[in-house]
């Protein structure tokens, strides 16, 4: 303390205090600021599940337990949830796989969250929906040929309790690892094929900039809507989720059917978004989250001008006869 007391009248003391206060504020904010929801990539992209892979009865149980309280046992909707009979399986897949459904608060817009069901449960649910709830082919189907979520090692990991001996378990772990690697490679190949299958940047860019960017932003960073709603950022969205959002129109979003934007045109659009997102920032490692001019102005003032003024203070700092 003595050290501080002795220096509190130093000409630079005021600046030091300001800098410390700013640092403290920054650290404090970082501590209380909400951490973003990280969607866990969970399963492998797949073709349409064959009937023997799904369990419709299980799907009914899931529906009755998690969905029916708001949407009704027959999916016809209720006070808290809309009629599901015409929305189509793409909407179900989108809402559940992005973690927006099931929702605890039917009035509020849901942010993206980790999915609460397993991929198998979702497949069962969709099978049940198609069989018993959906009005005769209405709404869009799940676009199974568009790549979905990257496989995740946890889905392959064996349970220790299933094995008697440590060796057997380790063996299984190794096997699972190999399975996971293979699945990942498959997925990557499928993903790359889908993205690079699009070759008309002009079309993808035009479609995205004229129909999507006004809400989701040029970089897919999202934007404000009215009444406190917002268009979500789409960086974590898989190609399939983007596709499903377009055909099902979640929330306030209008629908872009396969009639107005054909599947291969959607592929161009999705490819444009994902390629742009993966594009390295040629201008520098700090891309300011691609927010643009507001962030640039802020940095110009609080970093640029402040550093230059700090240099000016150094240059002109008082020199006493005995320093």
């Amino acid at each position: 303390m003595k050290w501080i007391t002795a220096r509190r009248r130093h000409p630079l003391a005021g600046y030091v205090v300001v800098i410390l206060a700013l640092a403290l504020f920054g650290v404090g904010y970082a501590a209380v600021a909400p951490t973003s929801d990280q969607a866990q990539a969970q399963t492998l992209a797949a073709d349409a599940p064959s009937p023997e892979d799904v369990d419709v009865a299980e799907g009914k149980t899931i529906f009755d337990q998690t969905c029916a309280s708001c949407h009704g046992l027959d999916g016809s909707g209720g006070e808290f949830g809309p009629d599901l009979r015409d929305v189509g399986p793409a909407a179900i897949d989108f809402q559940v796989s992005t973690g927006r459904m099931p929702s605890m608060n039917p009035d509020a817009q849901m942010p993206r969250k980790p999915m609460v069901m397993t991929e198998q449960e979702l497949a069962d649910l969709i099978a049940y929906y198609n069989e018993s709830i959906r009005n005769d082919g209405s709404g869009a189907d799940v676009p199974y040929d568009v790549p979905d979520i990257e496989p995740h090692p946890d889905d392959f990991a064996p349970l220790r309790s299933d094995f008697d001996s440590e060796e057997a378990y380790e063996e299984a772990v190794e096997e699972a690892e190999a399975e996971y690697q293979a699945a990942l490679e498959d997925y990557q190949a499928e993903y790359d094929a889908y993205i690079s299958g699009a070759d008309d940047t002009e079309m993808g860019m035009r479609l995205y900039l004229t129909n999507c960017a006004h809400c989701h932003g040029w970089s897919g960073g999202g934007g404000a809507l009215t009444d406190g709603r917002w268009a979500p950022e789409i960086h974590e969205s898989t190609p399939r989720e983007i596709y499903e959002a377009m055909v099902s129109g979640p929330g306030a979003m209008p629908m872009f059917s396969d009639g107005v934007i054909a599947p291969e045109e959607k592929q161009e659009l999705i490819s444009y978004v994902k390629t742009l997102q993966a594009e390295p920032d040629a201008g520098g490692i700090f891309n300011l989250q691609r927010v643009g001019q507001v962030a640039e102005g802020l940095i110009g003032w609080v970093v640029g001008l402040a550093l230059i003024v700090a240099c000016a203070i150094w240059i002109t700092a008082k020199q006493r006869a005995h320093d």
Partner: peptide
């Protein structure tokens, strides 16, 4: 004909 959300001029 196109626009982006969060459109801003320089400060």
């Amino acid at each position: 004909t196109s626009i982006t959300s969060g459109l801003q001029p320089d400060w």
